[in-house]
Design a protein around this nucleic acid. Sequence first.
DNA 1: ATGGCTTATTGTATAAGA
Length: 254
Amino acid sequence: MKLATWNVNSLNVRLPHVLDWLRDNPIDVLCLQETKQEDVKFPYEALKEAGYEAVHIGQKTYNGVAIISRHPLTDIQCNIPNFEDDQQRVIAATINGIRVICAYIPNGQAVDSDKYQYKMRWLTALTDWLKTELVTHPKLMLLGDYNIAPEDRDCHDPEAWLGQILVSPAEREAFQTLINLGLHDSFRLFEQEAKSFSWWDYRMMGFRRNFGMRIDHILVSDALKATCIASTIDKAPRKLERPSDHTPVILEIA
DNA sequence: ATGGCTTATTGTATAAGA
């Protein structure tokens, strides 16, 4: 089974890329972030024609997450339980016995901003929820845009970014706290090229110069670790006309 | 390099992303 995560930066704009990508790649489950559309506009029909079921929670302009799957989705959960949040950033479903959680973790804007405080609060709530979720669902996977580059090697220029959002010590500690629940960064279970990134700024020819960050991740629980076969980043969609600034991260499991 | 891009919006400038 192959699962992937992709921040599409508006599904309205990127639907052709998503459909083309699904046609060309044998993906079973795709988690999307930043659909930026209300549920009434979500392209259930086009995805169904492509052979996928979908669940989505969205809003106008910002955020919005979806899971699309070739296999049945059950026990749908939207948002983090007991966490007051008017932003649509989490959707979860059970697929083939695996708890699949799709998350769009807040960006944070700047370390001295309210949005950064929200990001940190949000990460705490996510961690608390996952702790209980892991008890009932040992086979669990957290896929999404984390807006955190866990290590210096996940950043094209750690010195320039020192202390900034995406790499700040508190964010990296929060990532580590997730790992300490018994999760594993599946991309790092395998040998990878140096300077592997999943996002590149639209500005300053970021992609052509490979000025990027690895901020999209697939964490897997202890119970799934041994089933992991390969993890890759597919840069092809980032090379298309009008691309998302993120590109898909893929995990293959047995 | 604190942004030169891209998205959406009851728009014609602003907010947000990362």
